Amino acid sequence: RKWEEIAERLREEFNINPEEAREAVEKAGGNEEEARRIVKKRL
């Protein structure tokens, strides 16, 4: 699934746990840019 690939990239890029990465992607509706913004806000 594409969402899992996005979550994996976010996890590696921001050094967050898989659960946090998945939550961000879900919140963003699968949009990678939006997920990235969500993760950055949390850091």
Rank of each mutant, 00 (worst) to 15 (best):
K40V: 15
R11E: 10
R1W: 11
A35I: 02
V25Y: 03
E20H: 06
N31R: 07
K27Y: 14
G30Q: 02
E4S: 11
R22N: 09
N31V: 09
E12Q: 13
A24W: 03
G29I: 08
V25W: 03
R9G: 06
E26P: 00
E13W: 06
R42Y: 15
K27T: 14
K40Q: 15
A7F: 05
A21V: 03
E5H: 08
A24E: 02
E20F: 14
A21S: 06
R36T: 05
E26Q: 11
K41P: 03
L43Y: 06
K40P: 02
E34I: 11
G29P: 01
N15W: 07
A24K: 01
G30V: 01
F14L: 04
E13S: 05
A21R: 00
A28M: 03
R42C: 04
E4W: 12
E20M: 15
N17I: 08
G29K: 11
F14P: 00
V39P: 01
P18N: 12
W3M: 06
K2Q: 12
F14I: 02
K41S: 07
E13Y: 07
R37S: 09
R9S: 10
P18Y: 14
E5T: 07
N17L: 14
K2V: 15
N17S: 12
E34S: 06
G29R: 13
R1Q: 13
R37M: 10
G30N: 03
E19N: 11
V39F: 03
L10H: 00
K27F: 14
E33W: 09
E13V: 06
A35F: 01
E33G: 09
A35M: 01
G29S: 12
N17F: 11
R11C: 04
N15P: 11
A7Y: 06
E4R: 11
F14E: 02
N17W: 09
E4P: 05
I38D: 06
E26F: 11
R11V: 15
F14D: 01
A7M: 13
P18A: 13
A21C: 10
R37A: 10
E12S: 12
K27W: 14
L43W: 05
A21I: 05
V39W: 03
L10I: 09
E12N: 11
K27S: 14
E5K: 08
A35L: 01
L43N: 04
I6C: 03
G29N: 13
A24Q: 02
E8M: 14
I16P: 00
R1F: 13
R9Q: 07
V39G: 01
K41N: 09
R22Q: 10
E8P: 01
F14Q: 02
E32I: 08
R22Y: 14
W3G: 03
V39R: 01
K41E: 15
K27C: 06
G30L: 03
E19F: 11
E4V: 08
L10K: 00
W3H: 07
N31T: 03
K40N: 12
R42T: 15
R11S: 10
A35K: 00
R11A: 10
E23P: 01
A35T: 02
R1P: 10
E26H: 12
R36I: 10
A28E: 01
I38M: 07
A21F: 02
E32V: 08
E23R: 07
W3L: 06
A21P: 00
E8T: 10
E19Y: 11
E19W: 12
K27E: 15
E33Y: 12
R22H: 08
R36G: 03
K41V: 06
R9Y: 04
I38F: 07
E5I: 10
I16F: 02
A24T: 05
E12W: 14
E5N: 07
R42F: 15
A7R: 03
K2H: 13
I38N: 04
A7S: 06
R36S: 03
E23I: 08
V25F: 03
E20D: 10
E5C: 05
E19Q: 11
G30M: 03
R22C: 06
A35Q: 00
A28D: 00
N15Q: 12
E8I: 12
A35C: 02
I6G: 01
E8G: 09
E5R: 07
P18T: 13
F14V: 01
N15S: 11
V25A: 04
N17D: 12
I16T: 03
R22V: 08
E8H: 12
F14A: 02
K41F: 07
R42W: 15
A35Y: 01
K2D: 13
R9M: 09
E5G: 06
G30E: 02
F14C: 03
E5D: 10
F14Y: 09
E13A: 07
A21Q: 00
N17V: 08
E34Y: 10
R1D: 12
V25C: 05
L43V: 06
N31A: 05
E19S: 11
E8F: 13
R1E: 14
N15M: 11
E26R: 09
I6Q: 04
E34L: 12
I6W: 02
E26M: 12
F14S: 02
E8A: 13
I16H: 01
F14T: 02
N15Y: 06
G29Y: 10
E20W: 15
R36F: 06
N17K: 15
A24V: 10
R37W: 08
A7T: 08
E12G: 11
R37V: 07
R36P: 00
E12A: 14
E5S: 08
I6L: 11
P18Q: 14
A21D: 00
E32Y: 11
A28S: 09
I16R: 01
N17T: 14
A21E: 00
R37P: 00
E19L: 10
A7N: 03
K40Y: 15
L43I: 09
V25D: 00
G30P: 01
R22E: 08
K2F: 14
E19C: 03
I16D: 01
E34W: 10
N15G: 11
R42N: 15
K41G: 07
E34R: 09
I6P: 01
L10M: 04
L43Q: 09
A24G: 02
R36A: 04
E26L: 11
E23Q: 08
K2N: 12
L43E: 06
E20S: 06
R22A: 11
E19I: 11
N31D: 14
I6K: 03
K2S: 13
P18S: 14
R37T: 08
E13Q: 07
A21N: 00
K41M: 06
A24I: 13
A28F: 02
P18I: 15
R1A: 14
I38P: 01
I6D: 01
K27Q: 15
E32S: 05
I16Q: 02
N31W: 05
L10V: 05
E34G: 05
I38H: 06
E33A: 14
A35H: 00
E4K: 11
A7L: 07
F14W: 04
W3Q: 04
E33Q: 12
A21L: 03
V25G: 01
K41H: 10
R11Q: 14
R42Q: 15
E13G: 03
E23D: 15
A24Y: 05
A24F: 05
E33T: 09
R42S: 15
P18K: 12
K41A: 12
R36M: 05
L43D: 03
E4N: 10
E32M: 09
E19K: 11
W3P: 05
G30H: 03
E12P: 01
E26W: 10
E12I: 13
R11F: 06
A24C: 07
E13P: 00
A28H: 01
A7W: 05
N15L: 09
R37C: 09
K27A: 15
E13M: 07
R36V: 07
W3S: 04
L10P: 00
E23M: 08
A28N: 02
E4G: 09
R9T: 06
E8S: 10
I6E: 03
A35V: 02
A7Q: 06
E5M: 10
A21M: 02
I16N: 01
R1C: 07
E34N: 06
R9K: 11
L10D: 00
R1Y: 13
I38K: 04
E32H: 10
R22M: 15
R9H: 06
W3Y: 09
V39E: 02
K41D: 15
A7C: 09
A35E: 00
V25E: 01
G29F: 12
E33I: 08
A28Q: 02
R36K: 06
V25I: 10
E12M: 15
E34C: 06
I38V: 07
R9I: 08
E32C: 05
L43R: 04
G30I: 02
E23A: 09
E8K: 14
K41Y: 07
A7E: 11
R22T: 09
W3V: 04
K40G: 06
N31H: 08
E12L: 14
N17H: 13
E23Y: 11
I6T: 04
V39M: 04
E20G: 04
E12H: 12
E5A: 10
R1L: 13
E13I: 06
I6Y: 03
V39L: 05
K41I: 07
V39Y: 03
G29H: 13
N31K: 07
R37Q: 12
E32N: 03
E4H: 13
